[in-house]
Every structure is written in C-alpha cells, then in structure tokens.
C-alpha cells in the first residue's frame, strides 16, 4: 500500500508530536536552543504581576525571562533565565517595574559598574517599584477630593463663561474684535503711509550713529583723557564721601552729647536755670529802665552835672 509500514507511520507521528511539543515548550518558555544561557535568582517581598514568562530588561533591551516564581516563607523566590549575554555585573539590582499604566510588570536589571559578573545560579538583589499605580494608591485619598474640587471649579467657570457668551457677551466680544480689527488696519495704513518718513528717520538715526562713531574714533585721545579725569574725579568724590561720612558721624556724636546734656553747651541747652536767671535779669533791667525813664533823678540825684560831663 505504501512505502512505509503502518508501524513506522505511527512511530513517526508520535515522535514528531513529542518533538514539536518539546520545541514549542522551549519557544514559549523563551529558552533558546543554542547559545550560552545562565540563570539568577532573587527574593522579593511581593511580586504582583510577575509570573513565569515575564520579561527581564536591561538598558531597555530584553535579555531574559522569568522561569519560576515560588513562595518561600515570607518572601517570593524568582528565578530568571538569561541568554546571549556575557553576564550581569555584581551589585546590580533586579527591580520590578510597571511597563504601562495598566500595571503590566517586568523585571528591569539596573546594572552596576563593577567588572566581575554574578556566577551562574547566583543571587541578585531585588527591589519592588510601586510605579505610578502604586503612587496613586498611596496618594489617591489625598488627591481625589482635590480633583473633584477642581472639577467643580472648572464646571462653574465653564457655566459662567457660557452665560457670558449667551447674555449679550457675545456681541460685546464681537464688537471688541471688530474694534481690534479696525485698529490694526489703521496701524497698517499708518505704517504704509509713513513708510518713507520712517525709513528716512531710520536713515538719519543711522547717520547720527555713524557720526558718533567717527567722532569717537577721531577724538579717541581726548575721550580717553576725559575718561581718566572722570575716573580721578570719581576717586576724589569717593574720598570726599568718606570724609563727609566721618564728619556726619562726628556731628552725630556731638548732637547726641548735646541732647544728653554732656559738656557745657549741652548743659546750657538742657539746664533751664540759666534761662531763668537771664529772664529775671531782663525783668530787673526792664524795671530799672522804666524807673530811669520815669524818674531819672532818682538815679542821677547823687551825680553832679560836673561829674557827667
């Protein structure tokens, strides 16, 4: 009937099925058929989202996959297989990170700079990165009321804007825009009309600048001396200011002393007795002059005419 007996056909079918299953298994478990492979293990407190077959990245490149995840006591042991890679430097970290917003996770190897590699089957330190979702979980309670508040604000703002636009605000806005349009047109026209004058002005300004330029070039020495003089003057001014400062400090001191009744001047200013004396003296003198006017003889009665002249 056929070149091959039925026995051989059956045998070939079964062996082929086993082979295909084996190859498929290796492919789906991401274990290459050739090339150097090695494995590492690590421990995590939790491995949400990591299961056998999960990808292991290093510098954004897929370098291996998770082989096995087992619960060992309180922690979770994760075995990773690597292929086509020289090795993982000692001191590297295996971080569980979210690869998208949905929380799909992968293990990311953070390379250290050490030259030696971790040996086959060795241990690599593991960390769990909560990612954006975790942060949301953490801060969600705080954020949510704020968000709803903001949304309310936005809502009322929109409503107000709506009202503004509905209740004739629309016409006002239109008017504003029309005015703006007219203004810009006017400016446009003005610029066009005065274009030649503007150009002239710019030309003149340019020539003035050129003149200044030549002037400064021609009179360089003079300008230099002026500058030197200015510098000297400034220096002197500085000196003067210093002295003035000192003076004002002295004056301050003096005024302070005056105010506080130190020294004779101070005492004179602050002690009213001198004034009282002077006052009573002036009063006495006043009386004396009065008397003299009224009755000069009173003072002159003892004087003889001869004595006066």
């Amino acid at each position: 009937m056929n070149r091959y007996s039925n026995e051989i056909k059956v045998g070939i079918t079964i062996i082929a099925a086993i082979l295909v299953a084996f190859v498929g298994f290796r492919i789906l478990q991401d274990i290459p058929f050739f090339g150097r492979t090695f494995s590492l293990h690590t421990y995590y407190e939790r491995v949400d989202g990591i299961s056998p077959g999960a990808t292991v990245y290093m510098s954004g490149v897929k370098v291996g996959s998770v082989r096995q995840v087992q619960l060992v006591g309180d922690s979770v042991r994760v075995d990773m297989g690597f292929s086509d890679l020289e090795g993982i430097p000692k001191g590297s970290l295996a971080v569980i990170e979210a690869t998208d917003l949905l929380g799909t996770r992968a293990i990311v190897i953070r390379k250290s700079t050490q030259p030696e590699f971790i040996e086959d089957g060795g241990y690599i330190k593991g960390e769990f990165d909560e990612g954006i979702a975790g942060q949301f979980r953490q801060y969600g309670d705080e954020i949510v009321p704020k968000i709803s508040e903001s949304t309310e604000h936005i809502g009322s703002f929109m409503a107000e804007l709506d009202m503004l636009l509905k209740d004739g605000g629309r016409q006002n806005l239109d008017g504003i825009f029309a005015n703006l349009n007219r203004t810009t047109t006017n400016i446009d026209r003005l610029v066009e009309e005065k274009h030649s004058e503007l150009a002239e002005s710019v030309d003149r300004f340019n020539s003035i600048l050129a003149n200044v330029d030549t002037l400064s070039a021609d009179r360089k020495e003079q300008v230099d001396t002026v500058l030197v003089n200015l510098e000297e003057t400034t220096e002197e001014m500085k000196q003067l200011t210093r002295e003035l400062n000192q003076l004002s400090a002295g004056l301050n001191e003096t005024v302070y002393k005056l105010n506080h009744g130190e020294g004779s001047l101070g005492r004179m200013l602050n002690d009213p007795s001198l004034y009282n004396n002077l006052d009573s003296l002036a009063y006495g003198l006043n009386n004396a002059v009065k008397k003299l006017n009224e009755d000069p003889r009173h003072f002159l009665k003892h004087m003889r005419l001869v004595d006066i002249f």
Partner: peptide
C-alpha cells in the same frame, strides 16, 4: 505575539 504568548505560558496549561 510572541511576547504575549510567553507572558502567559504555563507548562500546566499544556
């Protein structure tokens, strides 16, 4: 496709 297939592959399924 392969990434997806590998991510959910469990020997137990087979």
């Amino acid at each position: 496709y392969m990434i997806g297939s590998r991510s959910v592959f469990l020997p137990w399924d087979v």
